[in-house]
Amino acid sequence: MEKLEALHQNNKMNARLRKNSIWKSIFFLSTLFGLVVLAILIIRVLIQGLEWIDLEFITSRLSTQADKAGIMGAILGTLWVMVVVIPVTLIIGVGSAIYLELYSKKGKIQSFIETNIANLAGVPSIVYGLLGLTAFVRLMDLGNVVLAGGLTLALLVLPILIVSAQEALRAVPGHLSEASYGMGATKWQTIRKIILPAALPSILTGSILALSRAIGETAPLTVLGIPALLIPFPQGLLDTFTALPMQIYYWTLDSSLVAEYANLAAATIVILLLILFILNSIAIIIRNKYHQRN
């Protein structure tokens, strides 16, 4: 009798264990699902786009004829936008982070600004596009030029940069600044010569990630009315421009009219992903080097 009961219980336990291992595989497969889709996406884009990429594609101008079209204008446009985004976000972002972490008293103003930044991070990017359209394109009367696009994207990625810079500053060990104060340095001297250099690698990593977000962003640019027409290469901040994601957008839309445009879009995606991949690798290298030293 006892033996039977034990057997019975053993059977029950086995069933429970089996259930556990079945679900374990289901959980694993779900995790794989996202990665499989990622692989399909990348392989598909490579198959479609790779054979269209050559030096001519990268260096020539836009054209309505698929086999002559190039993306030099879009690459230059993206680079020019970065010329605006990088200094603006770095100065405002790092400045804000220093203020919030090192100067402001823990109180209402600080928590108000921090809540505000958290909320801004959740605002859809297209709303920033409308802000840019109203403030920069129309009110400041810039038109849809590099400066307007750059400022719009800068505002968009600013919350990301501030939060990561705050974390970087917070991670600087306290004894460094205490030693500096002990030597008679003032607060600003300590920040400038001790805290900022120590936090620099993490700040750089964060800003590269924010930058790559800005490079891939499309929605605000569509609202600003960035064209993908045959416009001359941008030469300065006040020229009209097009950017890589906008080029992908227009070619994808028109791919139902001209089938080759889909391949051109795929080829442009390969270039865009390559740029993002390089930027992210740099960020990871900086991060690893810094961690090793600590």
Partner: peptide, 20 residues
């Protein structure tokens, strides 16, 4: 790897949805 999935620009997903 999942972070890569999160870092892909949405325009690329749009292309993927429409053409694949």
């Amino acid at each position: 790897l999942l972070e890569i999935l999160a870092g892909i620009p949405t325009i690329v997903y749009g292309f993927f949805a429409f053409t694949f």
